[in-house]
Design a protein around this nucleic acid. Structure first.
Length: 185
DNA sequence: ATCCAGATGGTC
DNA sequence: ACCATCTGGATA
């Protein structure tokens, strides 16, 4: 956990955190081993106004962690089978988070897609609300390589949100990376 | 290339 | 009754 990003990193505007998360290293301690993957695709979900954000319905048992202090994990299940990992951003009281959608394991194995990524790294709801400034689950500074560019697109799978939320270009990814789930959209 | 169903369960 | 998904198989 030595190089874990600090609480201050997460306590910033969600789109800024999302951008800075590209290239960062997601780390999960599994007993003796630490599984690590480089984040290459994320999506921002910002406030109760954002009709794609789970906080649109206000505070509930599930979304409570998004209302808490930044730098915590928000992990939930979708479609009965995929665990989604988000990191809570902004200050306490403003519900927002960044969904981690794609990564590349250190060693090169591509982990495109939010469901795949969590399965490969052994991340599930047991880690919901866990502090990312800890030695269980954390993120280390990474950054982009020379020549790596950030691309933007609308978020995936949120058609129900309606305009203008469906169109918001709040999905950010490293162009051309093998860890990106839908190079096209 | 696009479409679609099936798996599978929490949430509101 | 929806879903912040993914896959494999059909169609074209």
């Amino acid at each position: 956990m030595s190089n874990a990003l600090s609480r201050d990193f997460y306590a910033r505007p969600t789109l800024t955190v999302a951008r800075d998360l590209l290239g960062a290293i997601l780390c999960h301690r599994r007993g003796d081993a630490v599984l690590k993957a480089r984040i290459v695709e994320v999506e921002a979900y910002i406030s109760e106004r954002d009709q794609a954000c789970h906080a649109r319905a206000g505070r509930t048992a599930r979304t409570a962690v998004m209302y808490g202090p930044p730098g915590h994990a928000y992990v939930y299940l979708v479609y009965g089978m995929h665990e989604m990992l988000n990191v809570v951003t902004e200050r306490e009281g403003s519900p927002a988070a960044v969904l981690v959608r794609g990564a590349v394991r250190l060693g090169g194995e591509p982990l495109p897609g939010p469901g795949r990524l969590t399965r490969a790294l052994g991340i599930d709801r047991a880690l919901d609300a866990v502090d990312l400034c800890s030695d269980r689950l954390w993120i280390e500074a990474g950054g982009l390589g020379r020549g790596e560019r950030i691309a933007r697109s609308p978020r995936i799978g949120i058609d129900y949100a309606g305009s203008p939320w469906v169109e918001k270009p709040w999905r950010l990814y490293v162009e051309g990376s093998v860890g990106v789930s839908r190079p096209r959209a």
